[in-house]
Write a protein that binds this DNA or RNA. Structure first.
Lengths: 142, 142
DNA sequence: CACTCATCTGGAACAATTCAAGTTTACTTT
DNA sequence: AAAGTAAACTTGAATTGTTCCAGATGAGTG
């Protein structure tokens, strides 16, 4: 289990430490969590890890490409360990829940902007805003 | 000029006040500005307007649908007065510049997710990440 | 013209994130 | 295996963007 994470860390030239393994494990088990939740999860395994360390680790892992940072408007930063398959996200306006959405076609249909204004575009991020099943029933039953 | 804004405000049932007119004028002349810049711009016309008022005004205008709030990851909230034509944005990773991008096809090609997990999707937001012309030349000339 | 409620002001509070200094730990070289 | 070096961790405080609160003011209504 953790040896897998160890290999990932070494592959990108990062030191293997307890906090980092704990963060990776937390993200594997809980996708789309915010930083505070990561801190809580990490501390169940490794008490005494400071919030600063978690921030550092998350940034290091993000720059290394092991995790992806997502930042829906109106909520704090969230992280997920599913990387490299450019999928998108559906976000609930009511409760903030996030679900993975695979890219419509295998290719990247939305990647090409009609007029890119000279921008060199390397990624197209799509956020589907709406209401999740739970919140939808809550509202209709009211 | 400002009479136009006055009509817009009345149309949505909001009081017509100097700060609001100033905010609308600022957004017309400077699209995609962050809150702090709006405050500065408003004060060139109306000194003494508090930051709190600008925040209030921006929120009121956003809920009323007169302006749109955009929130690219890694930067603070920005606003634009172009609404109702669901266009998208290209954001520069280096300097944070934002450019408008019209929706690829007249319709909404990306709106339908392949698997929506039961979400009722009402909007698809697309952000094109990349490098703006200015930052691209800076980097290559280095 | 007076009234009522939305709006504005000023100040303080808050949450998320980052900065800084010093200590410890993981990996590398001898 | 010991020592060195650079990365990583801890503690604590600072910053930034945003919101809350209480009271004063001004716009629109009857």
């Amino acid at each position: 289990m953790t040896s897998d994470f160890e290999a990932q860390l070494r592959a990108v030239g990062l030191h293997v430490t307890r906090p980092r393994l704990a963060v990776l494990a937390a993200l594997r088990d809980h996708p789309h969590v915010d930083t505070e939740t990561v801190i809580t999860l990490v501390r169940t395994e490794q008490p005494g890890v400071s919030h600063q360390t978690v921030y550092d680790v998350l940034r290091a892992l993000t720059t290394a490409g092991l995790v992806r940072r997502i930042h829906p408007a109106g909520s704090s930063a969230r992280y997920e360990s599913r990387v490299g398959d450019n999928h998108h996200h559906a976000v609930c306006r009511a409760c903030g829940a996030i679900a993975d959405v695979d890219c419509a076609v295998g290719a990247t249909p939305c990647l090409t902007a009609s007029d890119d204004h000279g921008f060199v575009v390397d990624e197209a991020e799509v956020v589907y805003w709406g209401t999740c099943p739970g919140c939808a029933t809550d509202r209709s039953s009211r």
